[in-house]
Design a protein around this nucleic acid. Sequence first.
RNA 1: UGGGGUGUAGCCAAGUGGCCCAAGGCACCGGAUUUUGAUUCCGGCAUUCCCAGGUUCGAAUCCUGGCACCCCAGCCA
Length: 561
Amino acid sequence: MSISNTQPPANFIRQRIDIDLAENQIKNVVTRFPPEPNGYLHIGHAKSICLNFGIAKDYEGHCFLRFDDTNPEKEAMEFVKAIQEDVKWLGFDWEDRLRHASDYFEQLFQYAVELIKSEKAYVCSLDGDAIRQMRGTLTEPGQDSPYRKRTVDENLDLFLRMRDGEFKDGAHVLRAKIDMSSPNLNMRDPIIYRVRHQHHQNTGDTWCIYPMYDFTHCLSDAIEGITHSLCTLEFEDHRPLYDWVLDNVSAPCHPQQIEFSRLTLNYTVTSKRLLAQLVNDGHVEGWDDPRMPTISGLRRRGFTPEAIRDFCDRIGITKKYNQIEMTLLENLVREDLDPKVNRRMAVLNPIKLVVTNYPDDLHEIFDAPNHPNKPEMGTRTIEFGKELVIERDDFMIDPPRKFFRMGPGREVRLRYAYIVTCTGFDVDENGEPSVIYCTYDPETKGGNTPDGRKVKGTIHWVSSHDGQVATVHLYDRLFTEENPAGSKARDFKDHLNPESLRVLSNAIVEPSVVQGTSIEHFQFERLGYFCTDPKTSTTDLVINRTISLRDTWSAQKGHKK
RNA sequence: UGGGGUGUAGCCAAGUGGCCCAAGGCACCGGAUUUUGAUUCCGGCAUUCCCAGGUUCGAAUCCUGGCACCCCAGCCA
């Protein structure tokens, strides 16, 4: 038996679930993906989405999409819409399990009342500074709030009045009564409700008090019957509080929180806060700028859901701090696109090539395969003529021996057309070549060599007669540093790559590169994978480079891509 | 001498005391095929698992002691 490659990768969370199932701790698996709608989803969220939805799928359980919307100041409908679109695009379906933490505000309120009644929560009227000061430090215990001894009746009365809008923002908070000397700061009477007179994206103006994350999350999990609440490492310290809340109210069940390490990708940032800065400061065009590691940016760049899911599978789930190489993601995109995408020819930096012995007004039509290794993908026609364009990089006045392209006196194949020999060139006032001349060998139609002669170089071309002008966006990594946010001394924006976007406005593409309403993917032969930009129009063809082809030649030569 | 975590190749990662002189992927280095210097294919790539002791017939896996790194003092999540 061969090893199945459809087997989901083993990881410690799946092992935990296997044990829970085997020991009958749970009957079926329920997970959730709980984004806060305060920004767009990024590749790090994709890891969590694939984990949570992937586990639900593999174990035939369920996964909720739940908006963790307890802080109305930062949250917006734009983000809840975008998040849903991104999760769907990645290929996951929450069916009828779309929820908001704010759907539970009334229940949460009742749980808070329970806590007050059992003397496990109190209204504290200290201001922010005082609360902070009395919390103590990492090495020193905190001090009890003077309001800690308020009676149940007094607390109840105050809490109800907080809800009724009697108090200004910050006047009072509700705190859990735990232990001000706990070595875990989260257990030092954490705030669980605060007053915020703020319009909420989902509940409107119904509430003016909002529950905090630590109180909301565990209870939302319990209400939904989540079995395994998967979150990132920074919440490890919060687990005792997660468990405390569930142990001290009449929660329907007690989900288990399990933490895993978040994704770090080199040469970019995976933090909503930092990405928001790039958007707000205008360093990129928006959340869906193709240079952004956001799901919407990657989509517009031409990355596929398949490649992203594959990436998430391959990086694994552990508790180790990691930094994944961007080249892994890039290679998986190539791997996904290579077998399924049509080949086309496009010249990014054109220079004119005149075939001097070709008839002036002849335009031959050739069939060219859409995929050289997959005949079943069919063919398209390409037009040949006397005047063509080729890539400037494919010609050198004085080429080295190993340059398998065009140079004076050299023979080269024009892909799927003819073998041509360079006979001369013109230069402009700067000494740069401006026109190249060649002759073609009529016996080599289609690029074949009936005499069996070897022609090492094959270059791409487009006919001037029917080639179409396009604007091509060449993208490169957004940052010049591996870990742009890794230094406390320097702002991450100092490491922005000034050449992350190059716009080529005179590219010539073959006419079969037509723009549809949705993103179309191509491989431009010898160049890379490209896609039409969603903002392209019939009069202005805009094409994004997803990723270049692997290029061992220029890598060896140390040439710049 | 606050608490919570993590340490297996350049980057991920399996491994849960004997089949480990450590799986797999990416990267890298050869070599074959090639009308994309692409793809594909074949081969190579940790006597060693943060370090030092110990237990054991046997340790990456157990014990003891170090070391390094990450997270926590929002009325953010």
